[in-house]
Structures are given as structure tokens and as C-alpha cells.
Amino acid sequence: MNGGLPRRLLLPLCVILVLLWSLLPILWQVTTSFKPNSELLSLPPLMPASPTFEHYRVIFDEQPFHHVLVNSTVVAFATTLAALGIGSLAAFPLARLPIRGKGTFLGIVLGASMFPAIVTVGPLFVIIRELGLRDTWWALVISHTSFSLPLTIWILTNFMRELPEDLYRASRIDGCTPWQSFYHVFLPLCRPGLAAAAILVFLFSWTEFLFALTFTATEASRTVPVAIALFPGLHEIRWGEMAAASVIVTIPVFLIVGAFHKHIVRGLTVGAVKG
């Protein structure tokens, strides 16, 4: 201990600071969601003096928030399914079959993930309007799937590449067609990769804003982030209801991060960090 703060106190102190920095803004939003409107107009009190569920009631009773929640859920699940299905099919030959130009293809996939969404949203809008898909789930599922495909392919290719090469050969000898090798051997074995990809794709779709903003028009397909961004309120901003909506959309995220933290880390770092 060389003067100043003892080293063994320094670590916990820093950890607490980091935790406060990460969590306080979220906690403040939660607090806000339980404050009656009167308490939102002044500070103090910091904590709600008379906590209320009024804001939660309003967004469900007086606004079509349940519609919006259903839209978000359907779109996120459908996107996850589609991206995983298409992505795992693509990852298999990229990881295992002798195809020329695999490296180039993976490079292009990685490049595609770098497109600014705003660049494609204009032409996509035109196509979607022509096809009559505006303001439908389809518009969002298709665009979300396409934008999460590069990440999915990247994660799953890396996972499958780590499986021993002999497993594929053995399955071929055992009488599998390439499809059977894929379905009976590779798919079950890359379950951790599928989980990681599924979680990241779900989170992407659940939180995506630009496509959802552009391709939806009404509550028929509007997702939660758009609903929060375009919160109705002619004269004053309804902070309490917005906070309640924020809390609701964050709860699944919170649960996913809590339960699958390790998968998320694995998915984000696969390929980028290697031993």
C-alpha cells in the first residue's frame, strides 16, 4: 500500500463505478415509469412518492401497444428462424465442402454486413411498395433476415469449421448424402453456435429501427422501437408512458442477456478472437 487509496479498495470501487454508469440510466427509466404524472414535472423527489401502474395501463388500454408487441415478437421470431435456416445451409458448404472462392465469398459476406442500412432502404422501399408489402410483417422479416444473414453465416461457418473434418468424412462413408450429413451431424453439433446466432439475430430484429420506421405505417406492422419513437402526444411528451413502454421492450432483452450472456459473447467474438 503506497499512499493514496489502498489497491485492494481500488478494484471494487472501479467495479461499482462501472456498474453505476451502466445501470443507473436504465434504473432511472424504470423509476420514471412508476411515477405519476404530477411527480414527473419536478425534482425532487427522486424516488416515486406514490408509485403507480397508471402508465402501463394507459399504453395497453388507450393505445394499441399489445398490437405493437405482437408485431415485434412475430417479426423477431420469424427473422430468427429464417436467418438460422438460410444461414446454416450456407455455412455448411463454406465450412466443409471443397468450393473454390470460399474465402472470397466470406469476404463479401463480411463486406455486406458493413453496408449502411440507409443506403439500401430507399431502393428497398420502392421494391416493397411495388410488391404491395408495405406495412406488412413480410417487409420487416425479409429486410431483417437479409441484414442478419452475414452475421449468422459468419458465426456458423466458424463453428462448423471447428468441428473435426473426419466427422464429415465419416458421415459420408456411413451413407449420408450431403444433406443428411448436414442435418444429422453438423446441425446438432453446432447447437451452441445456433444458440449464439439465434440470440444475436433476435436482439437485432427486436431492436431494429430504420427499416421498421420506413416500411411500416400503422399498427398493423409497427414494432415497439418505432412505436416508442413516434409516441403520440400533441402538446406534451408523455414521458411516463414512454418509460413504461421502454421498460416493457427492455424486459425480454434483460432476460436474454441474463440467461445467455455467454452465448452472446461467444457469438460476437467468434472468428474475431482466436487462440
Binding site: S22, Q29, T207, F209, P225, I228, S246, V253
Partner: peptide, 18 residues
């Protein structure tokens, strides 16, 4: 580590509103 990850996972729209 999980708690630190939370701000990254929540929708950006919510971040903006917060």
C-alpha cells in the same frame, strides 16, 4: 460482465429516450 452488456442490448430507440 452481464450487467455491463445490458446497455448494448437494449433498443437504441430506448437509449435515445432514456
Amino acid at each position: 460482465r452481464a450487467a455491463v452488456l445490458l446497455p448494448w442490448a437494449i433498443p437504441t430507440v430506448v437509449t435515445a429516450k432514456i
